[in-house]
Amino acid sequence: MSARSRKTQERLLYLISPIGLLLLWQLLLMAGFGDRRFIPAPTDIAVRFWDMIISGELWLHVGVTLYRVFAGFFLGIVPGIAVGLTMAMFRPVRIFFDPLIASLFPIPKIALMPLLLLVFGFGDASKIAVVAIAVFFPVIINTYSGASNIEKIYWDVARNYGASQSVMFRRIVFFGALPTIFAGLRIALAVSFIVLVASEFVATKAGIGYLIWNSWELLQVDVMFVGIVSVGVLGLIATVILQEIERKVIPWKAE
């Protein structure tokens, strides 16, 4: 079998499981299993999806959610990367941060929401803050482990050429850790959607999380599904973009 036809075959296989699942779902409902008022069929959801795109209602929520996700994401990853790298370079910094991470990482960040509402109020700031806090930890841990697992020989070479701390940091530690940092960013991206949508369940009048929760209260199950599917689609697109950035930024990664 040629490489090309194998690739086509793998693509088909890739699509079969989600399409098959949707088909099964549709057929079961059409055959009368389940109540379509409570469990809408994929076609019902698609129709509602389309309506909400045309009316612009969906765009409003998507826009708000994207803004909060990305603002929180960047506010969290920049200090996360910086702290992770510094921990790898300086032992006292690591010793200082280790117990903080160990105790703060396991706290469900959504549990901080009331506190953040108190501090930041009901606007976007509290949602952005919860995302930033949530992504901070996985990024620190990945960055630190990437930077501290840089092969010894690179340190030796840099030291042999008399590299200063600053050169070590900028030219060796950062780039050496970059592949692992990106693995951390992928986790962080998913985490930011998870945490944000949950945080939008309360104290806001816009965003996909609000859309989902509000449609539950109004018992518009099809709208609820539109919200859920939207999160998945946005997550997928964001991940693809991140992977493209990774390919550009890490040209040395062997294919």
Partner: peptide
């Protein structure tokens, strides 16, 4: 200047940048 058994070239730098490294630090 030392040359190691495993070249110790930095994978994230191209050949030219690797060669330049010792001049940059110096």
């Amino acid at each position: 200047a030392m040359v190691f058994q495993e070249s110790g070239l930095f994978p994230w730098m191209d050949v030219e940048t690797n060669v330049r490294f010792g001049l940059e630090t110096g």
